[in-house]
């Protein structure tokens, strides 16, 4: 039974409130409120982080983009900085749920909620993002990729820890990115598949590529074999098709009665990867 709801103004205040026990952080609350109603989350106190000004920033510091924990999907999606320096993330955030959901749900919350197909997480992993974590032991950092423990399970314990921000290098010229999504309708739908690509070219060759796909496993998956394979290759149709074919070995989507068979999604994944690569290469070559 919920007995208290506090809105601290500082990160220290948030941690102090958590220390008193039986508490949990709430940001947008889009998932948490439903879990509480369904009895999935039992908690006595909610610590709302929306009044902490330092958590509401989107900024660029020394070439790194920092997005605070209280920043909503819509703020990310419409940020000029993100649209310019990390378009893959702006696009991913724009596809979440509906405008109302994007106006409340935070990007960091989406990552910590650890759903296999979290759009923002898929993009952030491709961007090589790292989370900044505060707890009673001080500050630590973990790549977003490593935050996932399993379906709906994060390494972050929101009753003790606060992710203050997520940070990743901004994209430079010669880099390109893409976010491709297949869903059963244009809004209010979880993805059947989503793919994020970040690529760096040197000349007409691929310097390196990060390719993340979901939901093809309990957490977003880096197509490391395809990434390796494409390194140093010429940007052309042949490379794109070979890379798209190579992702299959690392994708094991399960059969979903609601969102398509594993067989279908595995097969059509290659199309999405192909389209993602074409878009990212084009952007990098601009």
């Amino acid at each position: 039974m919920l007995k208290d709801y506090v809105q601290p103004k500082t990160v220290d205040g948030v941690l102090a409130s958590l220390r008193q026990g039986n508490a949990r952080i709430i940001a947008g609350g889009t998932d948490l409120m439903l879990d509480m109603k369904a009895g999935k989350t039992e908690v006595e106190k909610l610590v709302d982080i929306n009044c902490v000004d330092s958590l509401k920033k989107i900024e660029i510091v020394d070439g790194s983009i920092i997005i605070g924990a209280a920043v909503t999907h819509q703020e990310v999606a419409t940020s000029k900085l993100i649209q310019e320096k990390a378009p893959v993330l702006a696009k991913a955030c724009r596809t979440v749920g509906s405008l109302q959901i994007r106006n409340t749900g935070t990007m960091v919350g989406n990552v910590i909620n650890a759903q296999p197909a979290a759009d923002a997480a898929v993009a952030l992993i491709a961007l090589g993002a790292v989370a900044e974590i505060f707890d009673e032991n001080g500050i630590s950092y973990l790549p977003v990729e490593e935050l996932y423990l399993g379906v709906g399970q994060s390494k972050i314990d929101s009753s003790k820890q606060l992710v203050t921000s997520i940070k990743f290098p901004s994209l430079q010229s010669g880099q390109g990115s893409a976010f491709v999504r297949l869903a059963q309708r244009g809004a209010l739908a979880l993805p059947m598949l989503n793919v994020s690509v970040v690529v760096t070219l040197s000349g007409d060759k691929v310097d390196w590529l990060r390719l993340v796909m979901a939901p093809v496993a309990p957490k977003p998956v880096r197509a490391t074999e395809a990434e390796k394979m494409i390194q140093g290759k010429q940007v052309n149709e042949e490379t794109i098709i070979a890379t798209a074919n190579a992702v299959a070995s690392q994708a094991n989507p399960r059969d979903s009665a609601l969102r398509g068979s594993g067989e279908y999604r595995k097969s059509v994944l290659q199309t999405l990867v192909k389209r993602g690569l074409i878009e990212a290469f084009a952007e990098a070559q601009k």
Binding site: A187, L188, A189, L258
Partner: peptide, 16 residues
């Protein structure tokens, strides 16, 4: 019933 809510039942939204 597997499709027991708006999120799982694919009726068209404005963008569809």
């Amino acid at each position: 019933q597997l499709n027991d809510g708006f999120h799982k039942y694919m009726l068209p939204t404005a963008v569809d």
